[in-house]
């Protein structure tokens, strides 16, 4: 009985996703050039948020390293963009971030709670400042130029990354490793005592999530043409996914997607004209979410649904 309800729900979700993908895939055919660029930005945020949530959602490890992996991707294409074919560079960006995340994961397994958060944050800053020092000292310039790619190509690559990510996230969530991740979030030592190799599960998942951030950095960098360490390793890229995921609803599959879409839309709408109000709104939304909506927007929607449908959906 329970099993069938879940399946129906999944089929519906899958159907909606397919329609969404179809609409998105044909966007350059009917949409304006601006809408393509705009949608690319939204997709970027969705990818960063969902890949962040793959690891941090179930485990509760608050990673602020997103900007590090994103930036590694950016620098991969800045360094190799001229010599290596575009798709290969993007994959390399993912691989580089994957490796960095493996290393970081292996080193920081012992750190819990805020320690892990501040460590990952410090890591971004460390990379940023070492890189800045290196660039000025040895290359003589602060920034680098990135190969230019046309907007439609960027769009399709981002879309491909998004689809791969959603499939990956879905598979992980449904697999036994998804359960293992969840058990780590619930009680790490108990998870270890029932045979879960917590260190390996954590590190690999962290690295998988990082590889998507790296690929995203690599392709998105082509839109900015000129990058420097400050722009590439901006700590805002670490915070936004956290905010978006929490706002949308961390525990669910589509919560982070919803949160990222709304925030990205809001950003596009407000940031050029009212940047201060935009950040003020973001701060307020975050605060209100933490205080009053522990399960995010999705939690609120579910509560409303339950209230509307009365007793029927109350006990799924």
């Amino acid at each position: 009985m329970k099993q069938t309800t879940i399946d129906i729900k999944n089929v519906r979700t899958l159907g909606l996703l397919l329609i969404g993908v179809l609409l998105l895939a044909t966007l350059p055919l009917y949409g304006s050039p601006y809408s393509v660029i705009f949608t690319t930005s939204i997709i970027m945020y969705i990818v960063l948020t969902v890949s962040w949530a793959i690891f941090s959602g179930p485990t509760g490890y608050l990673s602020l390293a997103t900007a590090a992996f994103f930036g590694v991707g950016i620098y991969t294409i800045a360094i190799l963009g001229e010599e290596v074919q575009l798709f290969a560079v993007i994959l390399l960006g993912g691989v580089a971030s994957f490796c960095l995340a493996l290393l970081v994961g292996a080193l920081t397994l012992r750190l819990k709670g805020v320690y892990f958060a501040v460590f990952t944050f410090g890591l971004v800053e460390l990379i940023k400042h070492v890189l800045l020092w290196y660039e000025i000292k040895f290359t003589g310039t602060r920034g680098r130029f990135v190969v230019v790619v046309d907007n439609t190509t960027i769009y399709y690559i981002m879309l491909a990354i998004l689809i791969t990510l959603l499939i990956t996230a879905f598979v992980i969530r449904r697999s036994k490793y998804g359960l293992a991740l969840q058990s780590i979030g619930e009680d790490e030592s108990a998870a270890a005592h029932i045979g879960v190799n917590v260190n390996v599960v954590k590190t690999i998942t962290f690295a998988i999530s990082a590889s998507f951030m790296g690929m995203t950095g690599a392709i998105m960098a082509t839109r900015w043409t000129y990058i420097d360490p400050y722009g590439a390793f901006k700590s805002l890229y670490s915070f936004m996914p956290v905010l978006m995921a929490i706002f949308g609803g961390l525990g669910t599959f589509y919560g982070p997607i919803l949160g990222a879409t709304i925030f990205a839309y809001l950003e596009e709408l407000l940031i050029t004209e009212f940047p201060y109000y935009y950040m003020l709104i973001i701060g307020s939304i975050l605060l209100v979410t933490i205080l009053y909506m522990p399960n995010g927007l999705v939690g609120v929607v579910q509560r409303l649904q339950r209230r509307i449908s009365g007793g029927r959906g109350a006990n799924p």
Binding site: F239, M279, L280, I282, G283, I285, L286, L287
Partner: peptide, 9 residues
Amino acid sequence: LASFGLMFI
């Protein structure tokens, strides 16, 4: 996280 929000505000 709440203090992050405060920072922005």
